[in-house]
Write a protein that binds this DNA or RNA. Structure first.
Lengths: 215, 215
DNA sequence: TTAAAATAGTTGCATTTGCAACTGACATTG
DNA sequence: CAATGTCAGTTGCAAATGCAACTATTTTAA
């Protein structure tokens, strides 16, 4: 289940060739710096460091929409239209970013480089994987009760590992954010489920006791 | 805002060439027939007709996950893992489907056909567009109250057209499905918003009266 | 190493929401 | 033309949920 990375099956030499071919530009940023230089049509690749896509709400809240690690990609094409204008891209650590003009990427390459199409194929995989993740999230969020949200989420995790014994990959507060429910209400519901013998749980460790075929 | 289609910028002649190149297979189905022949790694293209991705719940409910029209694509890669096993792909009208082996598509083409990379680029656009739609849906579903869901949705539609006068593109029952809320609760909330002077609405016609910059 | 921040857990209360069960209007179909 | 189905709209009520306000424990950072 490993995720596709943008440079999979592309050698370092080819990456250097690419920089000419695509007219790629690399830039270094220090921690906390905002990335302004993304014109509409360019793809950003995090060569090193961590980048965060942040939305500032009308009431001043900052929400981390996405955290992009090494080899991750970002760009206007990869997040929702609704975010436009309200979004900032900030380096949370010292980072090196490579920018590729999106037009260069999608247009036919005169040199017919193999890495060109490999890169596009990798992007296709990355966007597909992201799409699957979003579908899963919609699947969870579309459940109308907190309990069903939890069960759908637990089943999802359980299906990935094939075990009824799951470890939630983030803190319970972050889980409540993922499920878009109140944290205390979520903990309350988990307690209820524990009391009813549907699950066993201590912090991030959850054991599924209910019949999974029912859901 | 027109959607990318899989054969954009590919001529009919090239499509025929492609069938050899990709070892593509076409098959005709009659209305109501189930498409069984999708092996894990193949991409389905709806040449003509309409295809529906349907999930059967444990309690016998059938939910239409997706409706794919002419030139639409489907395949294991394009919907969530969670659906596996519970999903059926059914032709709702007489249809012709073209299958392309996914491996052939992503591997380097010996003939270096231009339409090969065009096809991949189109797929990239289609998946990106789908991803954006899913992001929008998550954005709406992540709102914690019915009112905020409605407002987020109304703003989204309004932003697309640039008008405060919007027409909901599906029936109100379907809107409640999209928002994943109870239909009567939704209508109750819309009535409240009408009473409070936030909106004006008659059936699918909604006029935004609240200050949009607030949300 | 101490202070500050994040995390897990709990509870009372008011509000929101889902559910069920209606009505009436309109459209579609045999 | 009757019948069946879809759609918009409404209401009472019980249950679910968000919000606020706590405590206690662990992590992180100064």
């Amino acid at each position: 289940m490993s995720e596709t990375r943008i440079f999979d099956n592309i050698t370092n030499e080819e990456i250097n060739q690419m920089k000419n071919c695509f007219k790629a530009v690399s830039r270094k940023y220090i921690a906390g710096e905002t990335i302004n230089s993304i014109e509409e049509g360019s793809l950003g690749i995090v060569v090193s460091g961590v980048v965060e896509i942040i939305r500032f709400d009308f009431d001043g809240n900052r929400t981390i929409l996405e955290r992009i690690n090494e080899n991750g990609i970002f760009g206007r094409l990869f997040f929702s239209q609704i975010y436009e204008g309200d979004v900032e891209i900030i380096c949370s650590t010292d980072s090196e970013i490579m920018f590729i003009d999106y037009d260069h990427l999608t247009k036919q390459c005169h040199n017919a480089c193999s890495h060109h199409s490999t890169l596009i194929r990798n992007m296709l995989s990355i966007v597909s994987e992201k799409s699957i993740k979003l579908s899963n999230r919609v699947e969870v969020l579309s459940q109308r009760t907190l309990r069903k949200k939890l069960i759908t989420y637990f089943n999802m995790i359980s299906k990935e590992t094939g075990k009824k014994n799951i470890i939630i990959p983030f803190s319970l507060s972050n889980l409540s954010d993922y499920l878009c429910v109140d944290r205390s209400a979520m903990l309350r519901e988990m307690k209820k489920m524990r009391d009813e013998g549907l699950i066993d749980s201590h912090a991030k460790k959850v054991t599924i006791l209910y019949d999974q075929t029912m859901f």
